[in-house]
Amino acid sequence: MGKASKDKRDLYYRRAKEEGYRARSAFKLLQINEEFGIFSGVKRVVDLCAAPGSWSQVLSKELNKDTDETDRAKIVAVDLQPMTPIDGVTCLQADITHPKTLLKILQLFGGEPADFVCSDGAPDVTGLHDLDEYIQAQLVLCALQLTTCILRPGGTFVAKIFRGRDIDLLYSQFSYLFESVVCAKPRSSRGTSLEAFIVCQGYRPRPNWKPELDLTKSTEEFFEDAQIGKSYIGNDMEFPDAEERSIARFVACGDLEDGDSDATYVLNTNERKRNLEPVQMPTAPPYKKALELKRKGEMQRKS
């Protein structure tokens, strides 16, 4: 183990391996469901930012538990990255911040509404916290944009958030659209990470607002008439002094018996060996060529 690195192979990592999930994230969704029962009655789902696909795996398994072949849940999974196919899941490789992607998803549902939209999306963090938080918030807003176009009234929306400096703005905006908005922290999500999930139940479309995808509009512009307490800056560009903020109720979820992702557990040596290969499939990073050049010693330091 290198300097300052921390063993990422914790309890949940090992359980993911054992139970055949592609990522430990699976337990986050399972624990959220345990607490809020969000899967009940769900037949049509959009899983945004789904790669490598452990949420889709959970959905495909849990939603089809007591159903026969003819009545299987419709699951559409979207990600920038390619995904290995999952039985009963339609995969779409696309950028969710692009309005065209949302149109495609709507088409895949053929006009039918969805019961549940979830997004576990996270951008590559730069390390510049304000930028990272902004991009994360944009990703959540894009997911919300699709949600307002496709979710049936009363439906559920779950999205990953970073609990940073402006998270109270998001809480406030969401509370205009859902009966209940809660910040959930599954025990399988590390306590040291800012990650949490916004669990929004009971979708209430805004009265007098018809969400409409317009390819020429940005996400911010999309919500302009929704009246969800977003402060819009007018032509005078005056800085909004007090923006609407609120704090969502916090709920820790997952059974205490499930274990703690921050704790270190004793492993026997066999277990260690067996678990060495990663659960997540390697993706093709844009800097593949740079890595290759480095390996061959062809990076330039100085002519």
């Binding site: 930028l131 800056i233 560009m237 800085f239």
Partner: peptide
Amino acid sequence: GGRSFAIFPMESDEIRERAINEW
């Protein structure tokens, strides 16, 4: 920076923060 901007004479101490709707 972020959604904010300000335009002011170099010597000025009266700086008014303004904003637009996007980053």
